[in-house]
Simulated assay, not measured.
Amino acid sequence: MKKPRVWITRRIPQRGLDLISPYAEIDLWEDELPPSYDVILEKVRGIEGLLCLLTDRIDDRVLDAAGSSLRVISQFAVGYDNIDISAATARKIPVGNTPGVLTDATADFTWALLMAAARRVIEGDRFVRSGGWKTWGPTFLLGADIARSTLGIIGFGRIGQAVARRARGFEMRVLYFDPQRHLALEQELGASYAPLEDVLQEADFISIHTPLTPETYHLISDAQFALMKSGAILINTARGSIVDPQALYRALSTHRIAAAALDVTEPEPIPPDSPLLSLENLLITPHIASASFHSRTRMAEMAAENLLAGLRGEQLPNCVNPEVYQRTQE
């Protein structure tokens, strides 16, 4: 029997490819950079399975180009704002993602960014490498204390909760804002619910863990920065567009807030001529919060499992639009 054709839009960890290859004919995009939109339109023609990344725009036009043969879309990520879910659902195409596996890696990295920004680790490293270190100074590169400070968490899902759990070791006061209050977890995690304005006003560190939606687009802009403490440090490992980059530049360049640390930007990657890159009080990493060996391998496994289930006509282990199965049954 002929194997179904699948297109994988970037090389994923080998474990995922090994799971897929016995059951499908793989067309793998080998370039380091993601395929262009025009390439996507061409490559999806006639395929039965698609394994894609956040960098790939999968919209109505792409789904039309794929045609009726496309049976499943498997996203190598937790988020899926690059995919038109309603368009996929209308065509009864299940869409899978990789939730849960990224939680600890992303929470760990959030703390890496928080501590590096608070204690000015990157600035110190640059200073040493530039030959500037001549002596020890009592007031040189002073940073913010973490222990017993206030941590504000925006978005209290799996990752936000994991960040709060780690804060207990620093004896921090934890405030969180989320559309849904998590009463059962508040005592366990030592966290208290507060309106967004209160979190912004009271927190020494503000960490973003909410998904990108129309409601959270530029959730943090000039008005929100105006509420923050002058010594506040902002951390974003969620989605770049949750923070207005121009407002962020104004807040950092005028020292409205002390510093920020980002693993995500708007746009992404950040252009080399972005004014944000001129700021000493901003730390930026290239979207690597989930980049641990274990988490990326497990993501590949989960993406492969979703893809293969869809090709077999089975329900995806992790499906973001399960209503496609209800429609099928109807």
Rank of each mutant, 00 (worst) to 15 (best):
L212Q: 07
P4C: 14
P322Y: 05
Q14A: 14
G169S: 08
N281S: 09
I233D: 13
G49M: 07
I154W: 02
Q161I: 04
S207Y: 10
D38G: 06
L276S: 13
N236M: 04
R119M: 10
Q315S: 12
L185H: 10
E266N: 06
R168H: 01
V163M: 00
Q329D: 06
A191P: 05
F109Q: 00
A191S: 13
R173K: 13
V62G: 02
I220L: 15
L316Y: 11
N236P: 13
A223W: 03
D263T: 15
A291C: 09
Q201A: 14
Q75A: 06
I93R: 01
N321A: 05
N321Y: 03
A291Y: 07
V44E: 01
R119Y: 14
L113P: 11
L151R: 06
E30W: 01
G152S: 10
Y176W: 05
Q329S: 07
T150P: 04
L19R: 12
D204G: 08
I206N: 12
I288E: 08
P245R: 02
V72H: 06
E48T: 04
N236D: 15
V174N: 02
V163A: 01
A162F: 01
I8V: 08
D244K: 08
E301K: 11
P214R: 06
L63T: 00
G313K: 10
W111H: 00
I288H: 06
G160H: 03
L283Y: 10
A261W: 04
D38S: 12
D64W: 00
R327A: 07
P317T: 10
T297Q: 11
S292K: 02
G100L: 03
G67W: 02
A303R: 00
D263N: 06
L277R: 15
V6M: 03
A191N: 03
D27W: 01
H218N: 14
L113R: 09
E171M: 12
D145N: 12
